[in-house]
Write a protein that binds this DNA or RNA. Sequence first.
DNA 1: AAGTGGCTCAACCGCAGCAAG
DNA 2: ACTTGCTGCGGTTGAGCCACT
Length: 219
Amino acid sequence: MRKPCCDKEGNNKGSWSKQEDQKLIDYIATHGEGCWRSIPKAAGLHRCGKSCRLRWINYLRPDIKRGNFAQDEEDLIIKLHALLGNRWSLIAGRLPGRTDNEVKNYWNSHLRKKLIKMGIDPNNHRLNQILPRPQPVDEDTCKSNKSKTDNDRVSDAATSSLEEDETSAGSSHINLDLTIAVPSPAHTANLETRPENCNTAATSEVLQSEKSPTLLLFL
DNA sequence: AAGTGGCTCAACCGCAGCAAG
DNA sequence: ACTTGCTGCGGTTGAGCCACT
């Protein structure tokens, strides 16, 4: 059993004080983001590295956009969630200035309810009234389904919902005709340079679908 | 004004992936 | 090949706020 990283006695927990924030900001301004493990000690903070990282990424980073989500951001989150499932960091990577935590919170507190209200299952983005289409009974499908993770299942459903988007006009009230700005190169690189994502069904679907006009979002 | 129930969001926890030894 | 340590991610929690009764 690995020793937890945050069980060190004397480490602060809970909300951050202004002084702590300032120490972290000052340290990162001088030294940049680096080894989170060593940052607390170097910055004179009684926090674990994990906590520092989270605080910086979710709150202190200068490029964070705070405040309400715009309509196009909402639409994009819904669309991306349909494609990627609960891959909040990937979704947030497509929303400049937004963090995964923020997107996740916004989804759970607003968008889930919104979709439910619209009669859409937030887990698979299907209209609740629509009967699930019959699954092909092929051996490969059976095999792969056995080992599927929740994300993969969501992703399958997402694919279906995308098809529905294209084939059944009016199946959703969401305006998916997004005119969002092209993501910054950093975000694109972020996706491209994440090898761990290459194995996932969701990602491969994304990559495949980049060829289709629907996914200009991902270019 | 007080009670309370729901909501929001910052922060924590545990796990997985990866790299280094 | 295996272990260890670090980072990053997603799920969950809980304090504080707000609206309603």
